[in-house]
Design a binder for these strands. Structure first.
Lengths: 214, 214
DNA sequence: GGCAAAATTCAGGAGAATCCCGATAACCAG
DNA sequence: CTGGTTATCGGGATTCTCCTGAATTTTGCC
């Protein structure tokens, strides 16, 4: 029996997936999360075999949530479920340790097949995403450079800032001092050579850490 | 028996909805469309009672598809299913003749309830969307022009803010007092109901006033 | 295990930005 | 002429940011 945690911010999609997957005898839904932070928490509590993780989620995005899960619970396989075959999302999720990447316009059979594939210890990627990966792979072979890497905490703060949170707001949400958030913000801006929240927001959008809506 | 057509570009969501709705005895799925254009075509061929219409779809978006359907087949009720409670989408769909607007993070019970409500000749709107509509309604009552009209000066300041300019910076560039820029910024944020430079930047990007690069 | 580097946390104080009040002047429509 | 809109500023209280410095925890490596 494969125990599955659903992480997606849209309840009706979660319910749909639950109904679909509950028709499979070897699959059991053990929990649902509607944002990245709670998906990390629930993974620690429920120890599911597979987490089906939406890439774009509020509070803590799917990529950073995946990174935390794969580090804290390496036994748990994360299966990315995304609307986009965008290279940054694919790259980010796989880099964060996701064992698969499927698109939301795939069939239910593909989802169940992906779950069984990652349970068998293999990687599953939707056909529509393969081209993206190959392109990115080739690009990395030619030119491999990573400008300015942010730490996990910094990326987390960056997202909250780009979502419009104030320093005090973020500090309260993370149970940290205002001073700490200030330090993170400053380090982020120093590393990325940004001089305002506006530029920081645009950077976050380009990197897929936040979206223009919401 | 209510005959329903599903229109959404994500196959797995369609399958999920189909599985959910087929559990209802009085609801029957008669077809699926993965873009706006085919939803119009299928509505003409199948004459469903209700079309569940995603707002964002390729080829022909949900708003224009809805407009065509309600003009060609006024007997068919369109029920909008959207990720966003964004005012423009809500307004667009309802203006196009949609008889309901529900969010994707709602429960399945809400969806079936919405279907039965529109079949009874009434309008159904998700609770999370009601506020958006009321706001828009009130705004239309008070100011009979387009929602959120910025003055030229305000748009100018908005752009400079979204490009990362500080208040002092912008004031110097426009040969104005810092106080004046502060007033403009405040008025912009009040008009648009924004609470941070991050949100303001995203708004400017959506409106094409600035770009994510630069 | 142990050491160095990185990451994360926080404080004090000066300066800058913001918020909330109000005000003045130009302009245009009824 | 009156009223609304736009654009321009100021005072003062509050809040945020910037700079310097540092303690603690985690991580990487031999």
């Amino acid at each position: 029996m494969t125990r599955v945690l659903l992480a997606d911010d849209h309840k009706i999609l979660r319910q749909g997936l639950r109904t679909l997957l509950e028709q499979e005898k070897d699959i059991q839904i053990v929990g649902e999360a509607d944002n990245g932070r709670s998906s990390v928490k629930l993974t620690g509590e429920l120890a599911p075999d597979v987490v089906i993780m939406d890439v774009a989620m509020p509070d803590l995005n799917g990529i950073d949530a995946t990174r935390r899960i794969t580090e804290a619970e390496p036994r748990t396989r994360v299966l990315a479920l995304s609307m986009h075959s965008d290279g940054r999302y694919v790259k980010g999720m796989l880099q964060a340790g996701a064992r698969g990447y499927i698109l939301k316009d795939c069939a239910a059979e593909e989802l169940t097949h992906a779950i069984r594939t990652v349970m068998a210890g293999q990687i599953y990627v939707s056909p529509g995403v393969t081209g993206t990966i190959v392109n990115d792979y080739v690009r990395q072979l030619t030119a491999a450079d990573e400008p300015a890497t942010l730490t996990r905490r910094e990326r987390e703060v960056l997202q909250l800032l780009a979502e419009g949170g104030s320093t005090a707001n973020i500090a309260a949400g993370l149970h940290l001092s205002v001073k700490t958030i200030e330090t993170h913000r400053k380090r982020i801006m120093d590393k990325l050579d940004l001089r305002s929240i506006a530029e920081l927001t645009k950077y976050a959008i380009r990197e897929g850490i936040t979206t223009v809506d919401g």
